[in-house]
């Protein structure tokens, strides 16, 4: 192997930088290259105001439709009728009971679904043969409307809360698993190598690298899982009424139909909708925003 050696030399033409020069140069560069302070984000009222205006617009259209007298009011009650009905139902305690029953089922069922789906999701994402064999089945289950499980659940568990929980689990688990798997698949290979280089064992790699990196996909899966479980819970409550099963929002809907009171039906629909919007606005939207902002992925929302 040929090799050459340069002549030793002490002279350098450019004056050598002293330690202090380096530090101050560096400090200057750092200051130049980082954003000066935090830009004050001006809070706009529009994100709150615009949906409220749109809602008011829809209620106005509904009122106009009623005033036009196209349909009798027992078929299309006016917004005020529905409000009266809601106040009455609140007075009887129906609304509180239905809300608490359904929300409790929804939340407990969803929490169990998360606990079950997360380890399965990690296994499916990380173990080849598990993914090969169970991946397609899970995707199939995700596409299957979980209402389809209601008749089976009634036959297995009767008119009990177990039926409601079973349907929630079947709705949420496949979505959460698939969300997590998609999140893991999108983890940049570079991050995995970082874990390897830092000497992480398989468990540490999952815990410190894979899971946090997969969080956005996981959160999307959670969101979809919640939507699916909430929908299927309502369906289950409509179909499975009576017996030992508690009175939920779906039961209220079904009751309104049985007593042929359209305003009860509408109260129930609006409540179901409100819960859906509330969970999105109070739980998922803030989680998502925090996640994106911490990673510097949030869209500039100023202006």
């Amino acid at each position: 192997m040929p090799s050459e050696t340069t002549q030793p030399s002490e002279t350098t033409t450019a004056p050598a930088l002293t330690m202090n020069d380096v530090r101050s140069l560096e400090a200057g560069l750092d200051a130049l290259q980082t954003a000066p302070g935090t830009t004050t984000r001006r809070r706009s009222v529009w994100p709150v105001l615009a949906p409220l205006l749109a809602t008011a617009l829809l209620i106005g259209a509904w009122q106009l439709f009623v005033l036009a007298g196209i349909k009798p009011t027992y078929i299309v009650p006016s917004p005020l009728d529905v409000l009266h009905q809601a106040v009455e139902a609140w007075g009887r305690g129906d609304i509180q009971q239905a809300l608490v029953t359904s929300l409790e089922r929804g939340i407990v069922g969803f929490a169990v679904a998360v606990l079950v789906a997360t380890p399965i999701g990690i296994l499916v994402a990380r173990v080849r043969w598990v993914r090969l064999s169970f991946g397609p089945i899970i995707t199939g289950l995700q596409v299957l409307p979980s209402v389809a499980w209601v008749p089976a659940a009634i036959l297995w568990f009767g008119l009990t809360d177990t039926t409601a929980y079973f349907v929630i689990l079947m709705g949420a688990i496949p979505s959460i698993i698939n969300g997590l798997v998609a999140g893991v698949d999108q983890v940049p290979p570079l991050f995995r190598r970082v874990g390897q280089v830092l000497g992480a064992n398989p468990w540490e790699a999952v815990r410190h690298i894979i899971l946090p990196a997969a969080l956005p996909g996981y959160l999307a899966g959670l969101k979809q899982g919640w939507a699916f479980s909430w929908r299927s819970l309502m369906a289950a409550e409509i179909i499975a009424v009576g017996g030992k099963i508690g009175f939920g929002l779906g039961s209220m809907l079904q009751q309104g139909r049985e007593i042929q009171d359209m305003s009860v039906v509408l109260v129930a629909i609006l409540l179901i909708l409100a819960v859906g919007i509330g969970v999105e606005l109070l739980v998922f939207a803030p989680l998502e925003r925090r996640l994106l902002r911490r990673r510097g992925l949030a869209a500039e929302t100023s202006r």
Partner: peptide, 19 residues
């Protein structure tokens, strides 16, 4: 690896230095 050089520069080396 087809070739190698030993760089022997004492004291502070700058990237602009002639050697």
């Amino acid at each position: 690896i087809v070739r190698e050089w030993t760089v022997e520069v004492h004291g502070q080396r700058r990237i602009e230095a002639p050697e």
